[in-house]
Amino acid sequence: MLHLLQIDLKKLTSYRTFWVICGLYFVTLAVATASGMEFLKWLARMFEDFGQEINIDRIPLYHFPDVWLNLIWFSGWFKIVLAIMVVISVTNEYSYRTLRQNIIDGMSRAEFVTSKVLTNVLLSIISVAMIFFIGLVTGLIYSPTQAYESILTDVDFFLAYFLEIFFFLSYTLMISVLIQRAGLSIIVVLLSQMIELIITVNINEDIPWLVPYFPMRSLWNLIECPYPRYAFQEIKDYLDPLSFAIVAGWTIVFNLVAYRKIKKSDI
């Protein structure tokens, strides 16, 4: 297994595009998530100009345990950047025909897919580790409570965050394998939210029970937007097993479809 991951990393680590995209992803992610307080200060100044006052200390953006869910939900927006990296990595294998040569050289088709999936796992783990680290540091700086129990509350959402990233990269892997062209794959990945939204809005009247089972929808249900809680609304601050199961199920389906496609086709 490790051997297969090493093979895929060998392909990527000498590829400048890989470093540029991953660098952009991790730097923007780090800067964006760590600068929430600065954003709130800017917001407060704007309100002051309009003669109103908001007390930003009353918004516990980085307080334990709120910090976890706040950062996790916000970070989810950036996963599209990693997805584009996955599209490039997979479609390159088709356009350079290196997938064919890999098989000729003695990789099995299952091994090839596994090597790509393992890279997706690794990218997801790094994302989780980074958000955990930023959350911990910002929390320790800004949070008034440093008690263990409040630090440890809601950390199970990191499991959901890992699944969210891995789900999306698996989806991207499948789209790339099915379409095999970088440009078209990126467009499909970008538009899939909207396409699904159009479908769900149309069937919401007749079969509303089906809607939560749609893949992108299930992702929104897994990690709901936490910010309405500062407007005194209730949010789902626990991990829902059903949502988790739906997202995990789709993740398995995506990877299996990618494998089946590669298994069956002449390359």
């Binding site: 060998k10 392909k11 000498s14 590829y15 400048r16 350079y96 025909r97 290196t98 064919r100 040569q101």
Partner: peptide, 10 residues
Amino acid sequence: IFYPYLSGQK
């Protein structure tokens, strides 16, 4: 068939 961005050695 090779990876164009890698050197012959790599």
